[in-house]
Amino acid sequence: MTWGRPGVPGDLPAPEVLWARWALVAVVEATTEAEESARYRTGTWIDEEGLHLDDCGCTWWTFSRMADGRYVLFGEDESSEVKWHRPPVDMLAGAPDWLPHEELRDRLEGNELGCVYWYENGAWARAPYPGDLGDDGLDCGMSRFVVRVEALRLLDERVRRDGGTSAAALLEHAEHRRLTPELLESLVAPADGSAPDLPAMTRALHRAGLAPRTAAAG
């Protein structure tokens, strides 16, 4: 896959695909209830606001499902040149009213935002960029979920070491919304050799909406 630098809306897959891959990593990384409620977190996780990624260094992202099939993706990678560009780039130019404008403006005022993309009416969009902008960080931030081989590599670090078979199986089930706690228990094994935290993974699984309807209802 060839990415634009800066990113363009067409670089992003259908939001359901991006959600499934990102959410699956959040599920297999799920941890204790105490850590779930911590104010500051790192890694990949899901909560009431959506999916999150924070590497405690140069990258943080949030991906939220909104009403009526809409989504918003925002965050920052250190490769983004948007907030340093002069004259300033208005990352919310043309943005719809349903975006979380208060949070986004807080991020902008704190110099913490690298780009914003939104999805509605079957298409991704973002604010227009000046022609001399080199990068907005979308590639470095999202390629781990968008590029299938990278998503599999990321998962293979967290599941059974069997040449990628477990990672591929998990990804297939996640993308078709048919993950179950039983599948997670059979396929996920933390890298440190400890037993997986099945209750935590199950909570994350239901938050993510990756389970079959009957399993999710239960």
Rank of each mutant, 00 (worst) to 15 (best):
V28Y: 00
G75F: 13
R203I: 01
A167R: 03
I46F: 07
C58N: 06
D11M: 03
M91T: 15
R21H: 03
G94D: 06
T180V: 07
R5L: 13
E29W: 07
P212F: 06
A211D: 09
D106V: 08
T32E: 12
T32C: 14
D11Q: 06
D97K: 12
L92M: 12
R177A: 15
R207S: 09
C115L: 08
W61M: 11
P87M: 02
E102R: 13
L73S: 02
P100C: 10
G209Y: 13
G75I: 08
L18R: 08
L113A: 04
E48H: 14
R39A: 07
P128L: 02
W124N: 01
A30K: 04
G141K: 04
G164Q: 13
A34W: 07
T44S: 13
L154R: 07
L171G: 05
G193R: 09
P128K: 04
V146N: 04
T180P: 06
D90E: 14
V149W: 02
D197S: 13
V116G: 10
A189I: 01
L133W: 10
R161P: 00
G75E: 11
Y40M: 08
R148A: 05
G122L: 02
P199N: 02
E35A: 12
R144T: 14
P87N: 07
E112Q: 14
